[in-house]
Each structure stands twice: as structure tokens, then as C-alpha cells.
Design a protein around this nucleic acid. Structure first.
Lengths: 188, 188
DNA sequence: CTAAAAAATTGATGTAGGATAAGAAACTAT
DNA sequence: ATAGTTTCTTATCCTACATCAATTTTTTAG
């Protein structure tokens, strides 16, 4: 079951064992906080099922959603995780979820032992990088309505699982504005 | 000289040779376009000196600066580069520059031969990922004035080398707005 | 099934930053 | 040096989205 994560990669028995020993299965209930701010970010998480998000609370107390994650996505506070600083994001479970978590130190050891795994994560990182760069581009060049339409097209599976105010805070607008945008789209 | 890029990594003579053969030194003049849109993105570039930027031209014809690069930074249209699509960004030289360019296919071969190099690029990717995620966060949570102040603090070396309208298009505002913000800051 | 809480909508009003237009300042090249 | 070009500034007006304040609708818990 853990091996679904690495489908497409051929692994020896020994490698499989190692991986099965480093990933831990964990469950969270809707509303649970997987990671609070100002904690050490020791793990990243693979979503086996359910839905989570990471968000940032700005100095005015407003939430900004950075990332959603559903089945087969990975999630963490990657700012804290990669730069070895205390968490700046909160990871919240927004639909009951089963995750596989892996410790940063374990994964780095695995990189030494199984280069195929290091490559897998390098490529995953490259794909995320592309999507975050596209998001910066969209934020700079499109009005809220277009960003919302694109969001619904790009992440139809996510839209069904999350609240409107989660989407609004991802798009960088208020829940009231999103409501007006939705109304406008609906009447056509 | 090329090896400055990999300072901190110990390489054998053979590895050094391979690297010296795959990186090509190239010069560009201020105003030169290193990559146009809608081209195949075959290379990424290490800046030995000079200054470049990548920008996106939106459907209304407005430019949006995605990235600057000065000495010791890397630059490319990473959207096209990693996702194997035609370029969506333009790479422009904004101060006479000397670059080392490396072909994607060469670097991927190098990854097979020198795992230390794959690791170097993985870590570089992780650091970029962090900074782009911080930028998304800043764009979502700060007004233009604060984003500008942070920009000047974070990239003092870049500010001196680029035009105000480059900075404006990086911050997601017009050059007129940036002018007002600068005036406001100056009068205090 | 129902009360309470959470989420979404709607309306009225405010504001940061955009658009347009013009002029001033700073480079650039002869 | 000086004409031409590019960049920056300033002023006026405008718009997308925010804020505030009620409701209405939906979800949740007993």
C-alpha cells in the first residue's frame, strides 16, 4: 500500500523493506491540526486519502491558503521543512484523512541508500516548482474571476471538498468577493 | 572558473573534466534576449556576472517579472524547462553578462554519472522552492509598499542594477504606483 | 428532528492601486 | 554639448476588490 507512492519505480526487496519501515501511517479527523506554527518541521506527508491544506496567518490575523492536498499529493510546511526554521504555516485536515508521514532525517538517509528515491523526490520538487511559478504568474496577471475559473478547472476534485472561504483565501480574495464572482458566473 | 559553481563539492579530476566539457561560457549584451517565448527550453544558465530577468507577457501585453538573477544565481524559463513545453517566459539580459549555460540533456546525464551533482541541484531546487513560496505568501498578505520595502532589503544588490519598472512588474504594480510609494517613503 | 453554529450571500460604502495623460529628469549617441 | 530616447514623476479620475453589517442558507450535534 505504501508502495503506491512509488509506483513506476522498480525496487528490490531490501529497498521496499526500508521504505516500509520509514513511512508511518497516520489518521487525522476533519478539523485536526497536523502542524501548528512555530514548531520544528520534521516530516512531510503523503495523502493516501482525505483532504488537507496549509495556511499562513498574517499579522492582521487573516488566513492565506498556500496549498491544498488530496489523494496522491504531498503536503508539509515546505518553508520550515527545507529551510530548517520553525513552521510558519499551519497544516489543517479538512476531510478525514489517512497519511503516510516520513521524517526528513529518514528520507535523507534513504537518498544515500537508494538514489532512485532521491531522483523521485527531485522530480516531484521540479513539478511543484513549476506549479508554484505558474501560480505567481496567474496572481500577477489575472483578475480574481479568471483565477477562480482556472482553479475550478485545474482542481475540480478539490473544489468539491473544500469550503468557499478556503478557496477565497487561496485566490487572495475575501469570501464575500468570491461569493459575488460565483453569482456572476452562475447567472450566465 | 566554472568550478566556482560547485564550490563546496569535492570532485575527482574525471568529474571536473566532464563538468568543464558540458558547461559553455556565453556573453550577452544589455538588451539581448537570451530566450524568446514559444521556443524549446533546452538550457539553464549560471550567472558569472551581469544581471538578467525573466518575464511573462500577459494577454493584455503587460510584462510581469518572474525572476531576477545576478552573480551566482541561476536563471531559465523553468516552466518550459521542467515541464518540457515551449517557453512562456522571455529571458532578457539587463546588464552585460557572462553566463555558463548547460543543456538539460547534459545535466541529466551528469546526474547519472555524478550523484553529488544531482544532489547539488536537488538542494538548489529546494531553496528556490522556499523563496517562491515565500513570495506567494508576501503577495497574498502584504500591501505593495511593504513588498517594495522587503524587496529592497532582500535584494539590495539587484535594486541598483535594474530599472524601477522592472521592480514594479516584479511586485505586481504599475511603475506609477511604485513611484508614489517611493515618494512616500522618501519624505519620511 | 431541531437548535445552534458555521458558512454563504447580499447590500452599502471605502480604498489601494490602475489608467490615462502630460511633463520632468536621466541616459545615450552622435 | 545637444538632440533624441528612455525612464520616472505627478495629477486626475476610475475600478476591482475590501470592509462592515445584516440576513439567509447549510451543516453539525444532541
Amino acid at each position: 500500500m505504501i508502495l503506491e507512492i512509488f509506483k513506476g519505480i522498480t525496487l528490490t526487496k531490501q529497498e521496499t523493506d526500508r521504505i516500509e519501515n520509514t513511512f508511518k501511517k497516520v489518521h487525522f479527523k476533519k478539523g485536526d491540526i497536523v502542524l501548528h506554527t512555530n514548531e520544528t518541521v520534521t516530516h512531510q506527508y503523503y495523502v493516501y486519502f482525505g483532504c488537507l491544506r496549509t495556511y499562513f496567518i498574517d499579522p492582521q490575523g487573516k488566513e492565506h491558503t498556500i496549498q491544498f492536498a488530496i489523494k496522491d499529493w504531498w503536503i508539509s510546511d515546505y518553508i520550515g521543512y527545507f529551510s530548517e526554521t520553525k513552521s510558519v504555516l499551519t497544516i489543517e485536515c479538512i476531510e478525514d484523512a489517512t497519511l503516510f508521514k516520513i521524517a526528513k532525517k529518514d528520507i535523507e538517509e534513504t537518498y544515500d541508500q537508494i538514489p532512485k528515491i532521491e531522483r523521485f523526490f527531485r522530480k516531484k520538487m521540479e513539478r511543484s516548482f513549476v506549479s508554484f511559478q505558474k501560480r505567481i504568474l496567474a496572481n500577477l496577471s489575472q483578475p480574481a474571476k479568471e483565477r477562480y475559473i482556472n482553479f475550478t478547472k485545474t482542481y475540480p476534485n478539490i473544489e468539491q471538498q473544500v469550503k468557499n472561504y478556503h478557496i477565497a483565501s487561496y485566490l487572495g480574495i475575501t469570501t464575500e468577493s468570491l461569493s459575488r464572482i460565483r453569482k456572476e458566473i452562475a447567472k450566465k
